[in-house]
Nucleic acid binder design. Structure first.
Lengths: 226, 226
DNA sequence: CGATCGCTGCGTATGCGATACGCTAATTAG
DNA sequence: CTAATTAGCGTATCGCATACGCAGCGATCG
Protein backbone atom coordinates (compact mmCIF):
# COMPACT_ATOMS: atom_id res chain seq x y z
CA UNK A 1 0.00 0.00 0.00
CA UNK A 2 2.46 2.64 -1.18
CA UNK A 3 1.79 6.31 -1.74
CA UNK A 4 0.89 5.85 -5.39
CA UNK A 5 -1.49 7.88 -7.45
CA UNK A 6 -4.71 6.16 -6.55
CA UNK A 7 -6.52 8.92 -8.35
CA UNK A 8 -9.32 6.43 -8.64
CA UNK A 9 -10.50 7.69 -5.28
CA UNK A 10 -11.28 11.04 -6.81
CA UNK A 11 -12.18 10.03 -10.34
CA UNK A 12 -15.69 10.63 -11.54
CA UNK A 13 -17.02 7.63 -13.43
CA UNK A 14 -19.40 8.93 -16.04
CA UNK A 15 -21.48 6.18 -17.54
CA UNK A 16 -20.38 5.28 -21.05
CA UNK A 17 -23.02 5.80 -23.73
CA UNK A 18 -22.02 2.79 -25.75
CA UNK A 19 -21.50 -0.85 -25.13
CA UNK A 20 -22.93 -3.45 -22.89
CA UNK A 21 -24.40 -2.10 -19.68
CA UNK A 22 -22.63 -3.06 -16.49
CA UNK A 23 -24.19 -5.57 -14.17
CA UNK A 24 -21.63 -4.99 -11.49
CA UNK A 25 -20.73 -1.60 -10.15
CA UNK A 26 -17.93 -0.21 -8.06
CA UNK A 27 -20.42 0.64 -5.34
CA UNK A 28 -21.80 -2.87 -5.11
CA UNK A 29 -18.34 -4.38 -5.04
CA UNK A 30 -17.09 -2.05 -2.34
CA UNK A 31 -20.23 -2.48 -0.26
CA UNK A 32 -19.97 -6.26 -0.39
CA UNK A 33 -16.29 -6.13 0.50
CA UNK A 34 -17.11 -4.00 3.52
CA UNK A 35 -19.78 -6.50 4.54
CA UNK A 36 -17.26 -9.33 4.36
CA UNK A 37 -14.68 -7.41 6.33
CA UNK A 38 -17.24 -6.53 9.00
CA UNK A 39 -18.43 -10.06 9.51
CA UNK A 40 -15.40 -12.20 8.67
CA UNK A 41 -12.45 -9.86 8.95
CA UNK A 42 -10.31 -8.06 6.44
CA UNK A 43 -8.23 -11.14 5.73
CA UNK A 44 -11.24 -12.92 4.32
CA UNK A 45 -11.71 -10.24 1.71
CA UNK A 46 -10.22 -11.99 -1.29
CA UNK A 47 -11.12 -11.33 -4.88
CA UNK A 48 -12.33 -14.90 -5.13
CA UNK A 49 -14.53 -14.85 -2.07
CA UNK A 50 -15.85 -11.45 -3.02
CA UNK A 51 -16.74 -12.63 -6.51
CA UNK A 52 -18.59 -15.63 -5.11
CA UNK A 53 -20.64 -13.39 -2.86
CA UNK A 54 -21.51 -11.21 -5.81
CA UNK A 55 -22.29 -14.16 -8.04
CA UNK A 56 -19.74 -13.12 -10.61
CA UNK A 57 -16.41 -14.26 -11.96
CA UNK A 58 -13.23 -13.20 -10.23
CA UNK A 59 -11.83 -11.25 -13.13
CA UNK A 60 -15.03 -9.32 -13.59
CA UNK A 61 -14.16 -7.33 -10.53
CA UNK A 62 -11.14 -5.88 -12.25
CA UNK A 63 -13.40 -4.09 -14.69
CA UNK A 64 -14.49 -1.88 -11.80
CA UNK A 65 -11.54 -1.65 -9.44
CA UNK A 66 -7.87 -1.57 -10.48
CA UNK A 67 -6.69 -4.02 -7.84
CA UNK A 68 -7.03 -5.13 -4.29
CA UNK A 69 -4.99 -2.37 -2.69
CA UNK A 70 -7.18 0.21 -4.29
CA UNK A 71 -10.26 -1.73 -3.27
CA UNK A 72 -9.23 -1.49 0.36
CA UNK A 73 -8.80 2.24 0.03
CA UNK A 74 -12.23 2.50 -1.51
CA UNK A 75 -13.67 0.42 1.32
CA UNK A 76 -12.14 2.75 3.86
CA UNK A 77 -13.31 5.89 2.17
CA UNK A 78 -16.77 4.45 1.69
CA UNK A 79 -17.17 4.37 5.45
CA UNK A 80 -16.88 8.12 5.41
CA UNK A 81 -19.13 8.67 2.45
CA UNK A 82 -22.11 8.25 4.73
CA UNK A 83 -23.71 10.90 6.92
CA UNK A 84 -21.52 12.68 9.43
CA UNK A 85 -21.80 10.91 12.80
CA UNK A 86 -22.02 14.18 14.66
CA UNK A 87 -25.15 15.74 16.17
CA UNK A 88 -25.34 19.49 16.43
CA UNK A 89 -23.79 21.03 19.51
CA UNK A 90 -23.47 24.56 20.86
CA UNK A 91 -19.84 24.53 21.98
CA UNK A 92 -16.59 23.43 20.44
CA UNK A 93 -16.00 21.14 23.39
CA UNK A 94 -19.26 19.30 23.04
CA UNK A 95 -18.77 19.12 19.30
CA UNK A 96 -15.36 17.54 19.66
CA UNK A 97 -16.59 15.18 22.36
CA UNK A 98 -19.44 13.93 20.22
CA UNK A 99 -17.06 13.68 17.29
CA UNK A 100 -14.69 11.58 19.31
CA UNK A 101 -17.41 9.19 20.40
CA UNK A 102 -18.83 9.07 16.89
CA UNK A 103 -15.49 8.13 15.42
CA UNK A 104 -14.97 5.57 18.12
CA UNK A 105 -18.26 3.94 17.30
CA UNK A 106 -17.38 3.83 13.63
CA UNK A 107 -14.12 2.03 14.25
CA UNK A 108 -15.69 -0.27 16.77
CA UNK A 109 -18.24 -1.32 14.17
CA UNK A 110 -15.57 -1.76 11.52
CA UNK A 111 -12.43 -2.91 13.34
CA UNK A 112 -10.62 -3.68 10.11
CA UNK A 113 -10.66 0.02 9.32
CA UNK A 114 -8.31 0.77 12.19
CA UNK A 115 -5.43 -0.94 10.47
CA UNK A 116 -6.24 0.69 7.17
CA UNK A 117 -6.59 4.11 8.75
CA UNK A 118 -3.26 3.79 10.48
CA UNK A 119 -1.38 2.78 7.36
CA UNK A 120 0.12 5.33 5.05
CA UNK A 121 -2.52 6.25 2.52
CA UNK A 122 -3.94 9.12 0.51
CA UNK A 123 -7.03 10.97 1.65
CA UNK A 124 -10.25 10.22 -0.17
CA UNK A 125 -13.27 12.40 -0.81
CA UNK A 126 -15.33 10.85 1.95
CA UNK A 127 -12.78 11.52 4.62
CA UNK A 128 -12.15 15.01 3.26
CA UNK A 129 -15.85 15.68 3.44
CA UNK A 130 -16.02 14.70 7.06
CA UNK A 131 -13.03 16.75 8.08
CA UNK A 132 -14.44 19.68 6.17
CA UNK A 133 -17.79 19.32 7.89
CA UNK A 134 -16.34 19.03 11.37
CA UNK A 135 -14.20 22.09 10.86
CA UNK A 136 -17.29 23.88 9.63
CA UNK A 137 -19.13 23.00 12.83
CA UNK A 138 -16.25 24.13 14.99
CA UNK A 139 -15.79 27.45 13.24
CA UNK A 140 -19.55 27.98 13.42
CA UNK A 141 -19.32 27.96 17.21
CA UNK A 142 -16.42 30.38 17.18
CA UNK A 143 -13.25 28.34 16.92
CA UNK A 144 -10.56 29.70 14.58
CA UNK A 145 -10.03 27.45 11.54
CA UNK A 146 -6.36 26.68 12.18
CA UNK A 147 -7.09 25.67 15.75
CA UNK A 148 -10.07 23.66 14.60
CA UNK A 149 -7.91 21.63 12.26
CA UNK A 150 -5.27 20.77 14.82
CA UNK A 151 -7.95 20.05 17.40
CA UNK A 152 -9.72 17.61 15.14
CA UNK A 153 -6.43 15.96 14.30
CA UNK A 154 -5.50 15.69 17.95
CA UNK A 155 -8.82 14.12 18.87
CA UNK A 156 -8.64 11.77 15.89
CA UNK A 157 -5.14 10.70 16.83
CA UNK A 158 -6.25 9.87 20.31
CA UNK A 159 -9.36 8.00 19.20
CA UNK A 160 -7.55 5.98 16.56
CA UNK A 161 -4.89 4.98 19.03
CA UNK A 162 -7.36 4.26 21.81
CA UNK A 163 -9.96 2.19 20.02
CA UNK A 164 -7.75 -0.77 19.20
CA UNK A 165 -6.99 -1.95 22.73
CA UNK A 166 -10.69 -1.82 23.56
CA UNK A 167 -11.51 -4.46 20.99
CA UNK A 168 -10.00 -7.34 22.88
CA UNK A 169 -13.29 -7.49 24.70
CA UNK A 170 -11.98 -7.56 28.21
CA UNK A 171 -10.27 -4.21 28.25
CA UNK A 172 -6.73 -4.24 29.53
CA UNK A 173 -7.21 -7.43 31.47
CA UNK A 174 -6.46 -9.56 28.44
CA UNK A 175 -3.36 -7.65 27.53
CA UNK A 176 -1.91 -8.04 30.99
CA UNK A 177 -2.95 -11.61 31.52
CA UNK A 178 0.68 -12.71 31.67
CA UNK A 179 0.71 -11.13 35.11
CA UNK A 180 -1.15 -14.17 36.35
CA UNK A 181 2.26 -15.80 36.58
CA UNK A 182 4.00 -14.86 39.87
CA UNK A 183 7.38 -14.83 38.12
CA UNK A 184 6.06 -12.16 35.82
CA UNK A 185 4.73 -10.10 38.68
CA UNK A 186 8.24 -10.14 40.08
CA UNK A 187 9.71 -9.22 36.74
CA UNK A 188 7.37 -6.27 36.25
CA UNK A 189 6.86 -4.92 39.76
CA UNK A 190 5.27 -1.68 38.64
CA UNK A 191 2.71 -3.43 36.50
CA UNK A 192 1.82 -6.08 39.06
CA UNK A 193 -0.41 -4.00 41.36
CA UNK A 194 -2.30 -2.69 38.35
CA UNK A 195 -3.60 -6.10 37.38
CA UNK A 196 -6.12 -6.22 40.20
CA UNK A 197 -9.80 -6.17 39.48
CA UNK A 198 -10.37 -2.72 40.88
CA UNK A 199 -7.75 -1.24 38.60
CA UNK A 200 -9.51 -3.01 35.82
CA UNK A 201 -12.74 -1.32 36.74
CA UNK A 202 -10.99 2.04 36.53
CA UNK A 203 -9.93 1.05 33.04
CA UNK A 204 -13.52 0.64 32.02
CA UNK A 205 -14.01 4.26 31.18
CA UNK A 206 -10.52 4.79 29.95
CA UNK A 207 -11.62 6.13 26.60
CA UNK A 208 -13.87 8.78 28.12
CA UNK A 209 -11.16 9.69 30.60
CA UNK A 210 -8.48 10.13 27.96
CA UNK A 211 -10.77 12.07 25.68
CA UNK A 212 -11.67 14.48 28.45
CA UNK A 213 -7.98 15.01 29.13
CA UNK A 214 -7.39 15.90 25.51
CA UNK A 215 -10.31 18.31 25.60
CA UNK A 216 -9.02 19.77 28.86
CA UNK A 217 -5.72 20.38 27.17
CA UNK A 218 -7.31 22.17 24.26
CA UNK A 219 -9.43 24.26 26.60
CA UNK A 220 -6.41 25.25 28.63
CA UNK A 221 -4.60 26.26 25.48
CA UNK A 222 -7.52 28.41 24.32
CA UNK A 223 -7.84 30.17 27.66
CA UNK A 224 -4.16 30.93 28.06
CA UNK A 225 -3.53 32.06 24.51
CA UNK A 226 -6.64 34.24 24.28
CA UNK B 1 -3.23 -11.99 13.13
CA UNK B 2 -5.86 -13.26 15.51
CA UNK B 3 -5.69 -13.36 19.27
CA UNK B 4 -4.15 -16.79 19.38
CA UNK B 5 -1.80 -18.24 21.92
CA UNK B 6 1.45 -16.83 20.66
CA UNK B 7 3.07 -17.97 23.84
CA UNK B 8 6.25 -18.07 21.83
CA UNK B 9 6.67 -14.44 22.75
CA UNK B 10 7.13 -15.42 26.35
CA UNK B 11 8.76 -18.80 25.96
CA UNK B 12 12.30 -19.26 27.20
CA UNK B 13 14.42 -21.13 24.67
CA UNK B 14 17.04 -23.08 26.57
CA UNK B 15 19.73 -24.50 24.33
CA UNK B 16 19.38 -28.25 23.80
CA UNK B 17 22.39 -30.32 24.89
CA UNK B 18 22.00 -32.89 22.15
CA UNK B 19 21.81 -32.84 18.40
CA UNK B 20 23.21 -30.75 15.66
CA UNK B 21 24.09 -27.19 16.72
CA UNK B 22 22.02 -24.42 15.24
CA UNK B 23 23.51 -22.12 12.65
CA UNK B 24 20.48 -19.89 12.56
CA UNK B 25 18.88 -18.37 15.61
CA UNK B 26 15.62 -16.68 16.32
CA UNK B 27 17.46 -13.48 17.12
CA UNK B 28 19.29 -13.38 13.81
CA UNK B 29 16.13 -14.11 11.88
CA UNK B 30 14.11 -11.45 13.65
CA UNK B 31 16.91 -8.89 13.36
CA UNK B 32 17.26 -9.49 9.63
CA UNK B 33 13.50 -9.27 9.16
CA UNK B 34 13.49 -5.93 10.95
CA UNK B 35 16.30 -4.73 8.71
CA UNK B 36 14.31 -5.67 5.62
CA UNK B 37 11.19 -3.98 6.93
CA UNK B 38 13.12 -0.83 7.76
CA UNK B 39 14.74 -0.52 4.37
CA UNK B 40 12.24 -2.09 1.99
CA UNK B 41 8.95 -2.08 3.84
CA UNK B 42 7.00 -4.72 5.69
CA UNK B 43 5.54 -6.12 2.48
CA UNK B 44 8.98 -7.17 1.32
CA UNK B 45 9.43 -9.36 4.36
CA UNK B 46 8.72 -12.76 2.85
CA UNK B 47 10.10 -16.03 4.08
CA UNK B 48 11.87 -16.48 0.77
CA UNK B 49 13.51 -13.06 0.69
CA UNK B 50 14.43 -13.37 4.33
CA UNK B 51 16.03 -16.77 3.78
CA UNK B 52 18.06 -15.42 0.88
CA UNK B 53 19.36 -12.61 3.04
CA UNK B 54 20.37 -15.09 5.68
CA UNK B 55 21.90 -17.48 3.17
CA UNK B 56 19.69 -20.34 4.23
CA UNK B 57 16.82 -22.36 2.85
CA UNK B 58 13.30 -21.13 3.25
CA UNK B 59 12.11 -24.00 5.39
CA UNK B 60 15.01 -23.66 7.77
CA UNK B 61 13.37 -20.58 9.18
CA UNK B 62 10.48 -22.65 10.46
CA UNK B 63 12.80 -24.42 12.86
CA UNK B 64 13.11 -21.15 14.75
CA UNK B 65 9.80 -19.34 14.28
CA UNK B 66 6.38 -20.99 14.03
CA UNK B 67 5.16 -18.90 11.14
CA UNK B 68 5.10 -15.50 9.61
CA UNK B 69 2.43 -13.97 11.83
CA UNK B 70 4.44 -14.86 14.87
CA UNK B 71 7.57 -13.54 13.22
CA UNK B 72 5.94 -10.15 12.81
CA UNK B 73 4.99 -10.13 16.48
CA UNK B 74 8.56 -10.99 17.38
CA UNK B 75 9.82 -8.21 15.15
CA UNK B 76 7.56 -5.74 16.90
CA UNK B 77 8.50 -6.83 20.37
CA UNK B 78 12.17 -6.85 19.48
CA UNK B 79 11.96 -3.11 18.96
CA UNK B 80 11.10 -2.80 22.61
CA UNK B 81 13.68 -5.22 23.85
CA UNK B 82 16.30 -2.50 23.56
CA UNK B 83 17.06 0.20 26.10
CA UNK B 84 14.25 2.45 27.21
CA UNK B 85 14.28 5.62 25.08
CA UNK B 86 13.67 7.80 28.08
CA UNK B 87 16.21 10.00 29.87
CA UNK B 88 15.72 10.70 33.55
CA UNK B 89 13.49 13.61 34.41
CA UNK B 90 12.37 15.25 37.62
CA UNK B 91 8.69 15.71 36.93
CA UNK B 92 5.95 13.52 35.57
CA UNK B 93 5.27 16.05 32.86
CA UNK B 94 8.82 16.09 31.57
CA UNK B 95 8.94 12.30 31.82
CA UNK B 96 5.82 11.90 29.73
CA UNK B 97 7.00 14.51 27.24
CA UNK B 98 10.31 12.76 26.72
CA UNK B 99 8.49 9.46 26.52
CA UNK B 100 6.21 10.82 23.84
CA UNK B 101 9.10 12.08 21.77
CA UNK B 102 11.02 8.87 22.29
CA UNK B 103 8.16 6.73 21.09
CA UNK B 104 7.65 9.03 18.15
CA UNK B 105 11.25 8.62 17.12
CA UNK B 106 10.97 4.86 17.37
CA UNK B 107 7.97 4.71 15.08
CA UNK B 108 9.49 7.20 12.70
CA UNK B 109 12.53 4.96 12.36
CA UNK B 110 10.39 1.86 11.92
CA UNK B 111 7.23 2.97 10.14
CA UNK B 112 6.06 -0.58 9.55
CA UNK B 113 5.66 -0.94 13.30
CA UNK B 114 2.80 1.54 13.35
CA UNK B 115 0.55 -0.84 11.50
CA UNK B 116 1.60 -3.76 13.67
CA UNK B 117 1.17 -1.75 16.84
CA UNK B 118 -2.32 -0.68 15.85
CA UNK B 119 -3.48 -4.17 15.00
CA UNK B 120 -4.98 -6.47 17.58
CA UNK B 121 -2.15 -8.35 19.20
CA UNK B 122 -0.90 -9.78 22.49
CA UNK B 123 1.65 -7.89 24.57
CA UNK B 124 5.20 -9.18 24.52
CA UNK B 125 7.88 -9.05 27.17
CA UNK B 126 9.71 -6.15 25.56
CA UNK B 127 6.68 -3.92 25.50
CA UNK B 128 5.71 -4.99 29.00
CA UNK B 129 9.19 -4.07 30.17
CA UNK B 130 8.94 -0.62 28.74
CA UNK B 131 5.51 0.07 30.18
CA UNK B 132 6.70 -1.22 33.53
CA UNK B 133 9.74 1.02 33.41
CA UNK B 134 7.83 4.14 32.44
CA UNK B 135 5.31 3.58 35.20
CA UNK B 136 8.21 3.12 37.57
CA UNK B 137 9.65 6.48 36.56
CA UNK B 138 6.31 8.20 36.94
CA UNK B 139 5.59 6.78 40.36
CA UNK B 140 9.13 7.68 41.39
CA UNK B 141 8.31 11.33 40.85
CA UNK B 142 5.09 11.06 42.78
CA UNK B 143 2.38 10.02 40.37
CA UNK B 144 -0.09 7.40 41.62
CA UNK B 145 0.23 4.09 39.74
CA UNK B 146 -3.30 4.01 38.37
CA UNK B 147 -2.99 7.51 37.02
CA UNK B 148 0.44 6.70 35.64
CA UNK B 149 -0.98 3.82 33.64
CA UNK B 150 -3.81 5.75 32.06
CA UNK B 151 -1.48 8.67 31.42
CA UNK B 152 1.00 6.51 29.58
CA UNK B 153 -1.79 4.95 27.58
CA UNK B 154 -3.21 8.34 26.70
CA UNK B 155 0.14 9.63 25.53
CA UNK B 156 0.81 6.44 23.59
CA UNK B 157 -2.55 6.64 21.89
CA UNK B 158 -1.87 10.15 20.80
CA UNK B 159 1.63 9.39 19.57
CA UNK B 160 0.62 6.29 17.66
CA UNK B 161 -2.18 8.14 15.97
CA UNK B 162 -0.08 11.21 15.26
CA UNK B 163 3.05 9.67 13.82
CA UNK B 164 1.48 8.14 10.73
CA UNK B 165 0.43 11.36 8.98
CA UNK B 166 3.90 12.77 9.55
CA UNK B 167 5.50 10.09 7.44
CA UNK B 168 4.31 11.39 4.09
CA UNK B 169 7.33 13.64 4.21
CA UNK B 170 5.59 16.90 3.49
CA UNK B 171 3.43 17.03 6.57
CA UNK B 172 -0.22 17.66 5.85
CA UNK B 173 0.53 19.27 2.54
CA UNK B 174 0.58 15.94 0.76
CA UNK B 175 -2.63 14.75 2.29
CA UNK B 176 -4.47 17.86 1.20
CA UNK B 177 -2.93 18.15 -2.20
CA UNK B 178 -6.28 17.60 -3.85
CA UNK B 179 -7.07 21.15 -2.77
CA UNK B 180 -4.91 22.34 -5.63
CA UNK B 181 -7.97 21.82 -7.79
CA UNK B 182 -10.29 24.85 -7.60
CA UNK B 183 -13.32 22.60 -7.86
CA UNK B 184 -12.18 20.83 -4.71
CA UNK B 185 -11.69 24.10 -2.90
CA UNK B 186 -15.28 24.90 -3.69
CA UNK B 187 -16.42 21.46 -2.56
CA UNK B 188 -14.58 21.71 0.76
CA UNK B 189 -14.85 25.39 1.68
CA UNK B 190 -13.71 24.89 5.26
CA UNK B 191 -10.60 23.05 4.24
CA UNK B 192 -9.63 25.40 1.44
CA UNK B 193 -8.18 28.26 3.50
CA UNK B 194 -6.12 25.77 5.49
CA UNK B 195 -4.13 24.66 2.47
CA UNK B 196 -2.10 27.84 2.34
CA UNK B 197 1.61 27.77 3.04
CA UNK B 198 1.34 29.61 6.32
CA UNK B 199 -1.11 27.09 7.69
CA UNK B 200 1.32 24.47 6.59
CA UNK B 201 4.07 26.10 8.61
CA UNK B 202 1.81 26.00 11.65
CA UNK B 203 1.45 22.29 11.02
CA UNK B 204 5.16 21.81 11.31
CA UNK B 205 5.06 21.53 15.04
CA UNK B 206 1.75 19.79 15.18
CA UNK B 207 3.08 16.84 17.09
CA UNK B 208 4.59 18.98 19.81
CA UNK B 209 1.42 21.04 19.98
CA UNK B 210 -0.85 18.07 20.34
CA UNK B 211 1.37 16.41 22.90
CA UNK B 212 1.42 19.54 25.03
CA UNK B 213 -2.37 19.64 24.90
CA UNK B 214 -2.54 16.09 26.16
CA UNK B 215 -0.12 16.93 28.96
CA UNK B 216 -2.12 20.06 29.76
CA UNK B 217 -5.18 17.93 30.06
CA UNK B 218 -3.51 15.51 32.45
CA UNK B 219 -2.15 18.39 34.51
CA UNK B 220 -5.58 19.99 34.73
CA UNK B 221 -7.03 16.69 35.87
CA UNK B 222 -4.40 16.28 38.57
CA UNK B 223 -4.89 19.78 39.89
CA UNK B 224 -8.67 19.61 40.02
CA UNK B 225 -8.94 16.15 41.51
CA UNK B 226 -6.26 16.71 44.17
C1' DC C 1 -32.34 -3.94 -40.61
C1' DG C 2 -27.99 -5.89 -40.21
C1' DA C 3 -22.86 -4.79 -39.67
C1' DT C 4 -19.87 -2.93 -36.49
C1' DC C 5 -18.04 -0.88 -32.41
C1' DG C 6 -17.30 -0.40 -27.52
C1' DC C 7 -17.72 -2.20 -23.47
C1' DT C 8 -18.59 -5.89 -19.98
C1' DG C 9 -18.22 -10.79 -18.15
C1' DC C 10 -15.03 -14.10 -17.23
C1' DG C 11 -12.10 -18.73 -18.12
C1' DT C 12 -7.38 -19.80 -18.21
C1' DA C 13 -2.67 -19.33 -17.13
C1' DT C 14 1.11 -17.44 -14.38
C1' DG C 15 3.74 -16.47 -10.60
C1' DC C 16 4.40 -15.60 -5.82
C1' DG C 17 3.96 -16.49 -0.83
C1' DA C 18 3.22 -19.59 3.13
C1' DT C 19 3.91 -23.85 4.78
C1' DA C 20 3.26 -29.38 5.59
C1' DC C 21 6.21 -33.47 5.00
C1' DG C 22 9.98 -36.14 5.09
C1' DC C 23 14.76 -36.94 4.06
C1' DT C 24 19.66 -35.92 5.16
C1' DA C 25 23.40 -34.14 7.96
C1' DA C 26 25.67 -33.08 12.16
C1' DT C 27 26.48 -33.74 16.82
C1' DT C 28 26.69 -36.14 21.32
C1' DA C 29 25.26 -39.66 25.02
C1' DG C 30 26.12 -44.36 26.15
C1' DC D 1 30.42 -47.29 17.15
C1' DT D 2 25.47 -46.86 17.41
C1' DA D 3 21.39 -44.73 18.63
C1' DA D 4 19.20 -40.58 19.83
C1' DT D 5 18.33 -35.95 18.85
C1' DT D 6 18.02 -31.79 16.53
C1' DA D 7 19.08 -28.57 12.48
C1' DG D 8 18.94 -27.63 7.39
C1' DC D 9 16.20 -27.75 3.59
C1' DG D 10 14.23 -29.74 -1.25
C1' DT D 11 9.77 -30.74 -2.95
C1' DA D 12 4.96 -30.41 -3.23
C1' DT D 13 0.63 -28.13 -2.31
C1' DC D 14 -2.53 -24.66 -1.86
C1' DG D 15 -4.41 -19.94 -1.80
C1' DC D 16 -4.35 -15.57 -3.87
C1' DA D 17 -3.68 -11.58 -7.06
C1' DT D 18 -3.69 -10.62 -11.58
C1' DA D 19 -2.27 -10.42 -17.01
C1' DC D 20 -4.40 -11.85 -21.31
C1' DG D 21 -7.57 -12.77 -24.56
C1' DC D 22 -12.00 -14.38 -26.12
C1' DA D 23 -17.03 -14.14 -26.10
C1' DG D 24 -21.53 -11.81 -25.44
C1' DC D 25 -24.51 -7.90 -25.41
C1' DG D 26 -26.50 -3.31 -26.73
C1' DA D 27 -26.20 0.94 -29.10
C1' DT D 28 -24.93 3.31 -33.21
C1' DC D 29 -24.21 3.65 -38.11
C1' DG D 30 -24.61 2.58 -43.04
Amino acid sequence: MGTGDYELLWGEADRPARGRPAGLSRERIVAEAVAIADTEGLQKVSMKHLAERLGSGVMSLYRHVPGKDELVLLMYDSLMAGPLPLPDADTWRETLRLWGFGVRELFTTHPWAIVVGTAERPMGPGEAGWVDAVIGRLTAVGMPPELALVSVLTVDCFVLGAVRPELGGGGEADLFQFLADPAMRARFPNLAPLASSESDAAMGDYFAFGLERVLDGLEHHIETSA
